[in-house]
Design a protein around this nucleic acid. Sequence first.
DNA 1: GATGAATGAGTGTTCATTCAT
DNA 2: CATGAATGAACACTCATTCAT
Lengths: 190, 190, 190, 190
Amino acid sequence: MRIKDELKQDAIIQATVKLVNEIGFVSSSVAKIAREANVSPATIYIYYKNKEDLLVSTYVDIKQKLSEALLKNFDESKPFRDILKTVWLNGFEYVAKNIKHYQYAEQFSNSPYSDLVDHVKVEKHFEPMLKVLQKGIDQKVIKNVPHEMLAAFIFYPMMILSNPKLCKTLELSNENIEQAFTLAWDAIKF
Amino acid sequence: MRIKDELKQDAIIQATVKLVNEIGFVSSSVAKIAREANVSPATIYIYYKNKEDLLVSTYVDIKQKLSEALLKNFDESKPFRDILKTVWLNGFEYVAKNIKHYQYAEQFSNSPYSDLVDHVKVEKHFEPMLKVLQKGIDQKVIKNVPHEMLAAFIFYPMMILSNPKLCKTLELSNENIEQAFTLAWDAIKF
Amino acid sequence: MRIKDELKQDAIIQATVKLVNEIGFVSSSVAKIAREANVSPATIYIYYKNKEDLLVSTYVDIKQKLSEALLKNFDESKPFRDILKTVWLNGFEYVAKNIKHYQYAEQFSNSPYSDLVDHVKVEKHFEPMLKVLQKGIDQKVIKNVPHEMLAAFIFYPMMILSNPKLCKTLELSNENIEQAFTLAWDAIKF
Amino acid sequence: MRIKDELKQDAIIQATVKLVNEIGFVSSSVAKIAREANVSPATIYIYYKNKEDLLVSTYVDIKQKLSEALLKNFDESKPFRDILKTVWLNGFEYVAKNIKHYQYAEQFSNSPYSDLVDHVKVEKHFEPMLKVLQKGIDQKVIKNVPHEMLAAFIFYPMMILSNPKLCKTLELSNENIEQAFTLAWDAIKF
DNA sequence: GATGAATGAGTGTTCATTCAT
DNA sequence: CATGAATGAACACTCATTCAT
């Protein structure tokens, strides 16, 4: 027998991301994805239980890579602000390099498919970051507010500024990224 | 006959919003929307050119109402921070009362339908707010950064904190809303 | 609006019966049935909830017509044997004239779709016949055995002899039909 | 290796019969049969040319075993009625013990696959029985009517009474089986 | 001999839209 | 204005079968 072809599976994921970006979630049919991936529609069902599974798996895959990217060069021993800055820059770098994957994730997380994701599992990768946040709170470096509120002023602005759909005219120069970080930092610092 | 018409059109919009919330963009077919609105599918095509038109119009409708809500009690003569606070509270109130409409808009703005919207026109309603922002900059009350960056730290955190899909565990007490405003204000203040 | 076209519905039923006869239950797809009926596949779903519903309805329809045919000229006041003879001849006549419908019913009743039929309702049409059978038993004209056993020696042999699939070489002359009735009568008479 | 092979082939046949009984002819795909038999779909194509071949072979297999069962303890020298009685009882015993195989055969013989069977060959196994029937006719023990008509009053009632799909409420007690034989005998006896 | 990967053609069903009334 | 009937095209998915190992 043949063995599962990882190239094929990768082609399917890439095709999914590409199509969802180009024509949107609604119009991305299994047949079109298959054609884009140079694969038979039936082949997709070897690797994924159904369309839902394909879309969810692709999302989880992206989320994992995003969290890995964010925590690149993560060094708990550094000063709190430096850690945060590193994550901030990592975020912009990832989105710049993986804009399509990022936008796929955006579309996905606002769709009802999102309910099917095991969010606890996905967010586990961010745990080190959460620990650091808590340490910052304990050391009175940042404000003592719920983690989700902190995230709303650190990670989401980053996402929004990176998203050309939402931020149509703002150029993402290094200067702008630095400036935005100042705002984020001012928001949360004690 | 005018009254009857408007009732019908409103029923269609309500049905659209309801269905998109319950079963998502992908599964919301014209036939289902018609059934939900107690109307024939053909009737929808009397009020809207096609499905696209229906979805876009519904979005624009919601956006307009959102902007009206945000600018409720807008008084240019008040101190800058007070103006902002009013908008902030208006925002939370609107989303709390119109969560379904809000989530429809969220799903829509991340879909490719979004490209069909005349964003210039939609954002025109926010102009008074933008003027105030600029005045704040000129008077050195807030930081001199691009408007979009300011928005990313005022309006989007508001949206995110209001969105139960993104903020699953945070209770939206008055205290939390106040606290979040402090963060937003600290982010942008000069 | 247009009104439901009974000719269309009839064409669908005829196409269903014809195709199931020609290519069998397994191969009779909705698309093929639609093509045979000169109708769009989607049209079938206006008249029937799904394929299952189409097949079951067609069966029930045939069964009803069969029971009507069997009870043609039914006259309770006649002697028992005459009543039975009339039914017997009606049966052969019906099958001869409606061989395709009959064979559809045969295929259907041996398929698992059969479980979906409300048999109580279908068999209600035979009730007058059952009453007569019971009277025959009470008057000691026929043997006192369960109705189903009587049916196995009256109605089923009729069906089998009529079925060219099961009875490949037997010519169904009037003489043969008469002869067969003698056997049936001898089987059940007191 | 011979033993392993036969086990596999038998598993395939058993799986076919089981599935056709449980989900019907229409839904019984090669893949499902393979899974049920704990075998790869490709393996089935080693033993059978194609699906058709599998289904037909399974039918012929069952038919052969049925005819063997019917002719168990067949003794041409016994009185005609006793021979018939033995066959009658054998029939009920077989169906009771092999209800699934029997129902498979029923479904099959009403499907168009049935046309692919070499019926002459299949019916050859019944030849001894036909000879006995002819002797009964010649000796004026039973009526001089075509063999198929005799069969319609002996073998088919047996089949029908045994078939829980057709005979839903009749309990197959020994008494009932005896009683039914009386009817069959009365039908054909001279 | 035996396997699971692979597939084009097909499945039942729903789609957005138009038509006749 | 409003309708439900009608449809060709598309949908997600499964089919019987073949192929490389």
